[in-house]
Computed example of a mutant assay.
Amino acid sequence: MSESLHTHAPHEEAAHLAAESPAHKHSLSQWVAIFTALLATIGAVVSYQGTHLMNEVLLAKNEAVLEKAKATDQWNYYQAISTKEHLMQLAVDLTPQKQAEPYQKEIIKYTSQKKTVQAEARQLEQLSTAANMRSEQLNRPHNDMAIAMIFLQIAISLASVTALTGRVWLFGMAMLSALGGVGLWLVALGMS
């Protein structure tokens, strides 16, 4: 008696297992695979958009800091001019009337300079405030995109567990999580 051992190639074995498994499991596995691939694709897009938006937030915040630093420099310059103006006023008060004319001319010059410097400082502060507001406005949709990514990742995890366990209710939970993520993403897109 001769017994022969016959082995199947991996692709034949997979086809054999697929033929033995119930149709609904195979169908569920296919749906889970397609669903997971779609979520991964959407997740990649959301991640890219979120990263791009965060870069915009950081650029606006950097602009706000830069304009605030320029405004601070202008206010320091304003203080220096004010100090010079006060020194000239002191010189006028301590100098005989006949010799005070050059100091009075300096006071007029410094008064004029202060107005210009003050206007520039206020304008720079407004630019800083506007950049800060733009940064905050851009950050709101970024937060929604980050939360959307969390929901999409939860959906992918639930879909993976569905593939392992065959529990259809988990797939339903994955779909709900995915809908929440896609909904937040769409809201974030509308805000940006």
Rank of each mutant, 00 (worst) to 15 (best):
residue 47 S to A: 14
residue 47 S to D: 11
residue 51 T to A: 15
residue 53 L to P: 05
residue 53 L to A: 12
residue 53 L to Y: 01
residue 56 E to I: 03
residue 59 L to Y: 08
residue 61 K to L: 05
residue 64 A to Y: 05
residue 66 L to H: 15
residue 67 E to T: 02
residue 67 E to V: 01
residue 70 K to V: 10
residue 71 A to C: 04
residue 71 A to M: 01
residue 72 T to L: 12
residue 73 D to M: 13
residue 74 Q to K: 14
residue 75 W to M: 07
residue 75 W to R: 14
residue 76 N to K: 08
residue 78 Y to T: 04
residue 79 Q to F: 11
residue 79 Q to A: 08
residue 80 A to V: 05
residue 81 I to L: 11
residue 82 S to Q: 04
residue 83 T to I: 11
residue 84 K to G: 07
residue 85 E to F: 00
residue 88 M to R: 09
residue 89 Q to L: 08
residue 90 L to V: 13
residue 92 V to M: 08
residue 93 D to Y: 04
residue 93 D to F: 09
residue 95 T to W: 01
residue 95 T to I: 06
residue 98 K to D: 07
residue 103 Y to F: 14
residue 103 Y to A: 03
residue 104 Q to E: 05
residue 106 E to S: 10
residue 106 E to R: 09
residue 112 S to C: 03
residue 113 Q to M: 12
residue 114 K to P: 00
residue 114 K to E: 13
residue 116 T to G: 06
residue 118 Q to Y: 13
residue 119 A to D: 12
residue 120 E to H: 11
residue 121 A to L: 02
residue 121 A to H: 03
residue 122 R to C: 04
residue 123 Q to N: 13
residue 125 E to D: 07
residue 126 Q to N: 12
residue 127 L to V: 07
residue 128 S to D: 03
residue 129 T to W: 08
residue 130 A to I: 05
residue 131 A to R: 02
residue 132 N to Q: 11
residue 132 N to F: 11
residue 133 M to F: 13
residue 134 R to Y: 07
residue 137 Q to W: 06
residue 137 Q to F: 08
residue 138 L to H: 02
residue 142 H to A: 03
residue 146 A to I: 12
residue 146 A to N: 13
residue 147 I to Y: 03
residue 150 I to D: 14
residue 150 I to P: 01
residue 151 F to Y: 12
residue 151 F to K: 07
residue 154 I to A: 14
residue 154 I to M: 10
residue 154 I to V: 15
residue 156 I to V: 14
residue 159 A to D: 00
residue 160 S to G: 15
residue 161 V to W: 10
residue 161 V to Y: 08
residue 161 V to I: 14
residue 162 T to S: 02
residue 163 A to S: 15
residue 164 L to C: 12
residue 164 L to Q: 09
residue 165 T to A: 00
residue 165 T to K: 08
residue 169 W to P: 06
residue 172 G to I: 15
residue 175 M to G: 14
residue 175 M to E: 07
residue 176 L to C: 13
